[in-house]
Write a protein that binds this DNA or RNA. Structure first.
Lengths: 346, 346
DNA sequence: TTGAAAGCGCTAACAA
DNA sequence: TTGTTAGCGCTTTCAA
């Protein structure tokens, strides 16, 4: 191909010093004379030296690379989380390898294996929809590669997690619906293996209980929370003899689909049925009526997950690993406002 | 940390053969006896051998890694393009490093430099909104690292591009608006340095001309095509003495913002003003009226870009580099249907 | 068909 | 404060 790269040997020769001194000088080793450092850096720059990361990784047995596994990339939430991660990792000189599990536990296994073989130093993971256990992490955990989960976490010895309080958020959404006069609230939830969905559901149940409303199993629907799920849910609702007067869906995508379909069926939102979603995706402000939802501090989650991981990587053996809970916010909009009151709008 | 990795030396020792034979056997070198290969592979598997990519990269001076630079990750379009790329690159054993320029030419320079230092074998790039030239590619091009642009391409000696026919798409959208009785069509466009925006604009102009409508400079607005741009555009429209009867925006985000704001201002869509967007993002089916837009074959673009790059990488010197044009499709929905006719709906 | 040996570029233990 | 030296694990040329 092209001309060979400049190496520390070339720089050393040009300066008439040894390669190791160059290596040390370049990374500000304390034992090198300030003048020498200056000369080394100047010469390196002049000659267009750039470090060969493979040689370095090979030697140091560390890659300065972090693997990221997300269910999908196509949400505003994920894009923002990743931007937050990049912000931190770039600061510390780490690179990011991003891969999508496409919500499939099987593909997630593939992603992990690829990242493992790329010898990432650590992992940032949000689990796929249908991941059942952490067997596919064994290989990684055995090697003591640290893993920080975010958003969709799982109980995993020695791993950290960054989450919101899904229970509380679910509780708040449901309480809000109740405060708007809803008594039969349907919950459109996801796979209860995922903390985010079980948490929201438990919060929903507790809010019902705290308000003296019995939980009705007919009003719980589990799905993958996509567009189709929204349509199906409305079909089912239309067939009910005793329809709900409120719906709490575990994400915005399905909430939007539900609202569209309800409206098509001649049902008014929120007058007949109030609808609340989750995530505060931009689409929640496009749909009419605007969607009540829960906001996540996505960028902050990304930053926290990344800096936690880097802490572990630096400290090597930092113990007291645990879970970080960041705060969420209930965003009240028209889709649930049935009483003429001043709600906090956004 | 943990136990050392299994190397080809370990496998060789276990089999009482030489490391070079193991290396060859593992990659199906033709000169190795079939039996030996079988034994090598079996033993490697049994011992849990996994190749050290750094040693290999260091030696071969190639990383089997492809760098991807995109403006932003938060669209359905990009997520799908990337999924298409992964599909192909995984097949050929290449890894992907994805980075976001956040629509900034300056950050794009940073991304390229990082990827360059990671010594990617090739690059897949969609340019940032305000990138002015290809100076920041010099470093990469000088090293003969192949670059394939997609969607937002640029004229660059020796580089390939994968695009849709933006001119034709712009022409079709505008012609459609005209067929719906629009005569004063406003174009909300982007930076004309970007092929996608200049193409759409030129198509718009040509359609006007072909229908005997003079291009009116007052009806061209350039912006970054975000939410705010939509609001601003409507503000400006409201102040016009002679308002447009149709709007063609260069993306769906701004089209959606425009429709919301028009409706807030008491203007009916499409009766008073018809609105068409571009990209067929999912939100185009949420907004009411549903948005007329142009569909891109995102996954296909990703696949084509990736396989083109891999072809170059394999063939080493493959010339006749050029541009691949994939087909788009005008999706007609309610936001532009002003005449009672049967349109192709989707 | 297989083996020996050199070296990719860097780091770090040890020596000076 | 700087230098010497020995690898990290792999590929590949040359020789057998």
């Amino acid at each position: 191909m092209s001309t060979r790269d400049v190496t520390i040997y070339d720089v050393a020769k040009a300066l008439n010093i040894s390669p190791s001194t160059v290596s040390r000088g370049l990374k500000d080793h304390p034992h090198i004379h300030a003048d020498t450092k200056k000369r080394i850096k100047a010469m390196a720059k002049e000659m267009g030296y750039q470090q060969n990361k493979f040689a370095s990784s090979l030697r140091k047995r560390s890659t300065e690379t972090i693997g990221v596994v997300v269910p999908k990339l196509n949400s505003y939430f994920m894009a923002t989380v990743i931007a937050g991660m990049e912000e931190i990792t770039n600061q510390y000189g780490y690179g990011l390898i991003i891969s999508q599990s496409q919500e499939s536990g099987k593909k997630e296994t593939g992603c992990l294996s690829t990242l493992f073989h790329s010898r990432v130093d650590g992992l940032l993971v949000s689990l796929a929809y249908d991941t059942e256990n952490i067997d596919h992490f064994n290989q990684i955990l055995r090697k003591n590669i640290p893993v920080v989960f975010f958003d969709r976490v799982i109980n995993c010895p020695g791993c950290m997690g960054v989450v919101i309080d899904n229970f509380m958020a679910g509780y708040e959404v449901t309480s809000h619906l109740i405060s708007q006069g809803c008594r039969r609230i349907l919950h459109l939830g996801g796979n209860m293996l995922r903390n985010v969905y079980s948490g929201r559901f438990e919060g929903y149940k507790r809010a019902l209980a705290d308000n003296g409303i019995d939980f009705d199993n007919e009003l719980l629907m589990i799905s993958e929370l996509g567009n189709q799920a929204g349509l199906d849910a409305v079909q089912a609702i239309m067939r009910m003899k005793h329809r709900p007067d409120g719906i709490f869906t575990a994400n915005d995508t399905s909430a939007v689909a539900v609202i569209c379909e309800l409206q098509k069926s001649g049902i008014r939102v929120p007058a007949d049925i109030a609808v609340a979603g989750f995530n505060n995706e931009p689409v929640s402000r496009v749909i009419k009526p605007c969607l009540t939802t829960v906001d996540y501090p996505a960028r902050e989650i990304g930053r926290l997950a990344a800096s936690s991981l880097i802490n572990i990587l630096k400290d090597k053996g930092s113990s007291s690993l645990s879970t970080i809970i960041v705060k969420h916010e209930l965003i009240i909009r028209e889709s649930t406002l049935r009483k003429k009151q001043v709600g906090a709008r956004k």
